[in-house]
Design a protein around this nucleic acid. Sequence first.
DNA 1: GTGCAACATTGCAGACTATGCAATAATTGA
DNA 2: TCAATTATTGCATAGTCTGCAATGTTGCAC
Lengths: 215, 215
Amino acid sequence: MSIAEAPGLRERKRIATRKAIQRAVLELALERGLERVTIEEISRVADISPRTFFNYFVSKEAAIVGDSPDFIDGEALQHFVDGGPNGDLIRDLGYLLADAAERASEDRDTQIMRKELHSKYPHLFALRMAGMRVFEDELSAVVARRLLREDAAYAKDQATLASRSRLVTLVAMGALRHAWTCWADSANKSGEPLAGRMRDTFDQLESVFVKSRQS
Amino acid sequence: MSIAEAPGLRERKRIATRKAIQRAVLELALERGLERVTIEEISRVADISPRTFFNYFVSKEAAIVGDSPDFIDGEALQHFVDGGPNGDLIRDLGYLLADAAERASEDRDTQIMRKELHSKYPHLFALRMAGMRVFEDELSAVVARRLLREDAAYAKDQATLASRSRLVTLVAMGALRHAWTCWADSANKSGEPLAGRMRDTFDQLESVFVKSRQS
DNA sequence: GTGCAACATTGCAGACTATGCAATAATTGA
DNA sequence: TCAATTATTGCATAGTCTGCAATGTTGCAC
């Protein structure tokens, strides 16, 4: 929306190259194991020079883990800021994330290959989380907007607002990890939707917190 | 306790070398920036051969981020499993972690240098989180023990128990991240204790979850 | 469509990382 | 003291990653 209507040749080529590299590295890594894949091979398969590889990714691993999600916008975001689908902060945040996950679709194959590699090499998974830092910051800002809506008193204390938003965000990221691992561990019936898992996880989250108090 | 009463010369040397390397890399990285430090220099300062460096750490970064915490045991653990200090699952878990943080003391300097580097190079911080995987698994097992105590019905459904434990653990790790960043961002009055921050964070956590429901 | 500015790709050189292997040295325990 | 075990080291080698300068492509104004 906010960006280019017509991407233009240059941009289209760039995206194509990026995808070609990602495909290449995923296929090779699945076929013969991550450590037995070299940049040279990847480049050969993706039909670029080794030097070009590094114009796109800083490492093999970076090419595998995939890009961090785009910034969330649109009406789901506004809905969240205005008091979310359920009126429960964390859960609403989870639903917002699930929503974003549904939207951000890649090739089904790419997604599945990635998933496979993630459960085979857990450190990749960790790397992926590591790469979400900027996304986390964006999310944190969104949470801050909602908190401010819920309680205008936060306006007087920016530090507390920031801290609180970040706490909520990081807890949500923890839940997100849970959803991911559940999804990755689940039998590979191709259909299994990630977004559904996410909603499940965030629903459970509520009961985890409430339960101990009741008993 | 369970391990060696008297470490023996070999073991003591090993630990000394390990610390020497960590000191060396921390000092050098602070002094001239992470990317301008080579293994060769580190080895020179730590007084070992470059080859030996790799017998201790797989990379510069690994030497910087420090070891992941030892397994938690002792009476605090038992107390947690039996219904924890407050009777609130997540909060109790936080207190358990804070407890462990208090115990696991390193040189004050080392700790401060690490902290400095962590805020200077956020990807190191992420790396540290990534290195906590096995610790997370241990923690998850501990949480499972407590859940089973609270509700014996879990015994019938190991899958749910495992999933639930993992969810709680990952959420707690999120909160832990929050505590860490607060601590790292705080002005460097040397005294500021990490454990205190952790307890703060986990106390807030409760209100985050409850608040939205009340309003 | 010509031409120029902006950007992308490539090859090459060079520094650094990382691992296997075999020789050497230190520690352990009997 | 001796043999077993474990640690350190140097060397060789494969691979990663970056800067730079040359060459190719695309975008855009005219």
